[in-house]
């Protein structure tokens, strides 16, 4: 009981300090997550991720299921990610097919450790219903998450990943086609560049992370 009280006191104090320290940006969430680790220190959370983890991005994202999430949600599993836009005529379906090739090559046991993530570079058009339609069309299962955010968060994540994106006047995008393998802590462990390259090396890298 006393212990609980101490924890509570600590939480309150930390919240106050966090408010004090951060006024620009949304660092608050970071502090709150840190408090949670007092309770459970085995899981990967905001407090024990490396500096180079993409989970350090504070942005909020919306999924195909209308859920609002932070990137830390992808902690504790290996993530195969790519930036796409669903109105894409040719390259994106191919990049999705390339990821599916990776997915199909994994054993069912391996699949349990891996998640697939499509990050929209077209937040204006890629809404949850559009994502759901796209998932159906491409037969994406429950291991896949499609997310979009604000334009600013999109530009930020593209910069973190080193994706070059350029909006074209016809509403499309020029972009690099790269598949990213994130380790359980959100650090880019491997990049598969280009379309229709053999997934062998990527699979090897995924297995190294298991």
């Amino acid at each position: 009981m006393l212990n609980n009280f101490k924890t509570l006191k600590f939480i309150i104090l930390t919240s106050c300090i966090s408010l004090f320290l951060y006024s620009c940006g949304s660092q608050k969430e970071h502090e709150t997550s840190e408090v949670k680790t007092v309770v459970d220190s085995t899981k990967i959370t905001m407090s024990n991720i490396p500096d180079e983890s993409i989970f350090n991005l504070q942005s909020k994202w919306i999924t195909q299921h209308d859920d609002s999430i932070s990137l830390i949600k992808f902690a504790n599993k290996i993530t195969v990610a790519a930036m796409v836009f669903t109105h894409c005529q040719s390259a994106c379906p191919r990049i999705v097919a390339d990821i599916q090739r990776i997915e199909n090559a994994l054993t069912s046991q391996e699949k349990e450790q891996v998640r697939f993530l499509l990050i929209s570079m077209d937040p204006e058009r890629d809404t949850p219903p559009v994502f759901r339609e796209f998932s159906k069309e491409h037969g994406l299962n429950e291991h896949w998450t499609l997310i979009s955010s604000t334009m600013d968060a999109t530009v930020e994540i593209a910069n973190v990943l080193g994706v070059k994106v350029k909006k074209l006047s016809d509403g499309g995008f020029d972009h690099s086609n790269t598949i990213y393998i994130l380790n359980k802590k959100g650090v880019v462990a491997y990049q598969q560049n280009g379309l229709e390259v053999s997934p062998d090396e990527t699979l090897k890298q995924i297995r190294l992370l298991q």
């Binding site: 894409c88 070059k164 020029d174 379309l195």
Partner: peptide
Amino acid sequence: LTTGESRGNS
């Protein structure tokens, strides 16, 4: 972006 485009290799 000056090399290739959406359909090109990257």
